[in-house]
Design a protein around this nucleic acid. Sequence first.
DNA 1: ACAAACATTGTAAATTATTTACAATTGCAA
DNA 2: TTGCAATTGTAAATAATTTACAATGTTTGT
Lengths: 105, 105
Amino acid sequence: MKQKENLSFDFDFLEKLVVGIGEVSQITDIPTRQIRYWEEKQIIESLPEKEGKNRKYDYKNIKKMLLIKELLDEGYTLDSASEKIKKRMELIEKTLDKLNKKGSC
Amino acid sequence: MKQKENLSFDFDFLEKLVVGIGEVSQITDIPTRQIRYWEEKQIIESLPEKEGKNRKYDYKNIKKMLLIKELLDEGYTLDSASEKIKKRMELIEKTLDKLNKKGSC
DNA sequence: ACAAACATTGTAAATTATTTACAATTGCAA
DNA sequence: TTGCAATTGTAAATAATTTACAATGTTTGT
């Protein structure tokens, strides 16, 4: 069945969104090298792709990077930033799941 | 100044969003070859990049492709689909601009 | 000042993805 | 069947990413 359209924003889109590392860097102003480093330290985790293939990130990933970046600027360490963010990320996930079922907002 | 956060969705994000052709293909289920063809026919237009560099698309682009795809399935030609979509695209633009100023919805 | 841990950055070689251009193919309507 | 619109195939060149190893900054505690 078709979802209700034309309202301000479709979360359908966000659900399907995937972005490569170069574009994420462009969006967030975080160097690709740093993104890879964070991933190596397991602060973030790109979508599961086959070994050697290019990393892809979803909306949640990108949102998380932006939050981490903010906290780093405030003086947090990577680990403590990651810890502090957890509740926030859960909220984002929950919001996405919920709005997803409705289709729009 | 900082925008109001934590509400259901941030349009800030959409404004900055850029996506490569491979990911657009993955999101929309339109083959990359077809996306390039549509661009060649000037049905869509990727963001301005230097000659030879990889194409990037924004939210509006992607939305347009999805609309075109729907109309093609309904039997429209590319040109007539493109024509029919115009009002719709203007609405999307206007909505984005408006919500953009508010920051969230 | 010094060490130690944390964070970032540089880079080369191999690989993956995209571009561009030329061509072939398909489907449909006059 | 002829013509046009739309799509698809592909090879060579180029762009972008991955991976791994290493170097460099930065902060904190002693």
